[in-house]
Each structure stands twice: as structure tokens, then as C-alpha cells.
């Protein structure tokens, strides 16, 4: 059952990763295109230039979740490396509950006002030809941290599975030794 749940989270994560892959490629082309347009055709649109950091924002905000489930985040590991798989899993479960979740929840709930202010006032870019709907890009902050909370559930499940696997093999070893 929990294995199925883990697989579900991993699948969602792969899809999210695919989407962000496309976002990165779009961003790269976006910046390149703007350079070419400005230099060769003396014609650049502020809207296109703002699109660059909109794509960048999506990339960095949602990437945090993808990196979490794929173990992409950096650790100080001189002790961690020497721990058993079981101990690592316990650290990850406790860390997620005590470290990650509170931070994500704080930012999630702290950013509602930030978004609704922009929405109510109908905030747009302050530059000529810039993009409208500032609330939309601002809303990516709570959405991304909601996704991070979702992913952290997946990460916890993943580590619970590791823990159970370790316990089971420990049990087998004990039994064999017992024989």
C-alpha cells in the first residue's frame, strides 16, 4: 500500500520535472531571442523581457519540490554518510516534519495577503509594454509551497518505506542468526 503511494508521488514528481524541463528550455530561448531581437532588429518588447523572469520564477519555485524527492538538496554529510540507512530515514522523516513543513507552512500562509493585495488592486507591470496580472506570478509563491508540502508528504512516505524495508531485512537477519 505505502509502496503504491510512494510510486504515485514519484510519478507526479517526474511529470513536474518534465514540465520544468520545458520551462527551462523556453526561458533559455526567451533570453536568447530577446538578445537577437534587440541587437539585430533593434526591437525588443518589455513584455518578452519580463517573461524571462516569470519563467525563471516558476523554475526555481517548483524545482525545490522536484529536487526534494530526487535527493537534490545539499547536506552537510560528514556524520550523515556514516549512518545506517535506517538512521538516515529517521533523520529525514523527523527533519521533514520539524524543519521543512513549518517553513513551508509559514511561507504558504504568509503569502496569501501578498497575492490578494495584488489581485484586488489589479496590479500590472510598471513598465511600458510590460505584462499584466502581477497577482498570477505572485500566486506562484503559495502554489509552489503548497506543492512542496505535498511533496514532503511523499518524501516522508518514501523514508517510511525505507525504514520498513530495513526493519524487515533486519528481522530476516535476526531470524537467520537465530537458526
Amino acid at each position: 500500500m505505502l509502496i503504491k503511494v510512494e510510486q504515485f508521488f514519484m510519478r507526479v514528481n517526474r511529470i513536474l520535472g518534465k514540465i520544468l524541463t520545458v520551462v527551462l528550455l523556453l526561458m533559455t530561448l526567451n533570453v536568447f531571442f530577446d538578445v537577437i531581437m534587440r541587437y539585430t532588429f533593434h526591437n525588443s518588447s518589455v513584455g518578452m523581457q519580463e517573461m524571462e523572469w516569470h519563467l525563471f520564477s516558476i523554475l526555481i519555485l517548483f524545482g525545490v519540490s522536484v529536487a526534494l524527492l530526487d535527493e537534490g538538496h545539499v547536506r552537510v554529510d560528514f556524520l550523515y554518510d556514516r549512518y545506517s540507512e535506517k538512521r538516515k530515514a529517521i533523520i529525514n522523516i523527523i527533519g521533514t516534519l520539524l524543519f521543512l513543513l513549518p517553513l513551508a507552512l509559514l511561507i504558504l500562509f504568509g503569502s496569501f495577503g501578498f497575492v490578494t493585495d495584488a489581485y484586488q488592486i489589479g496590479e500590472i507591470s510598471e513598465d511600458p509594454g510590460g505584462l499584466p496580472f502581477r497577482w498570477l506570478i505572485k500566486a506562484m509563491i503559495p502554489v509552489a509551497f503548497l506543492v512542496l508540502i505535498f511533496s514532503s508528504v511523499g518524501y516522508t512516505v518514501k523514508n517510511i518505506n525505507i525504514l520498513r524495508r530495513e526493519n524487515r531485512s533486519q528481522l530476516t537477519i535476526d531470524n537467520e542468526v537465530g537458526k
Binding site: 534587440r38 533593434h42 526591437n43 525588443s44 518589455v46 523581457q49 519580463e50 510598471e126 513598465d127 511600458p128 509594454g129
Partner: peptide
């Protein structure tokens, strides 16, 4: 026309109308 200029705000809007290439 086509002058690449960093000029924000209203003035940027005015310059854009005159064909200036307003750049961030």
C-alpha cells in the same frame, strides 16, 4: 528610431511611441 534605451515608467511609454527600443 530603434535607439536602445533604458527608460522606465511614463517616459518610457512616450519614447516607445516615438520608436525607441525601450529595454529593461
Amino acid at each position: 528610431k530603434g535607439l536602445k534605451m533604458r527608460i522606465p515608467g511614463l517616459a518610457g511609454e512616450v519614447f516607445a511611441k516615438l520608436g525607441v527600443n525601450v529595454t529593461n
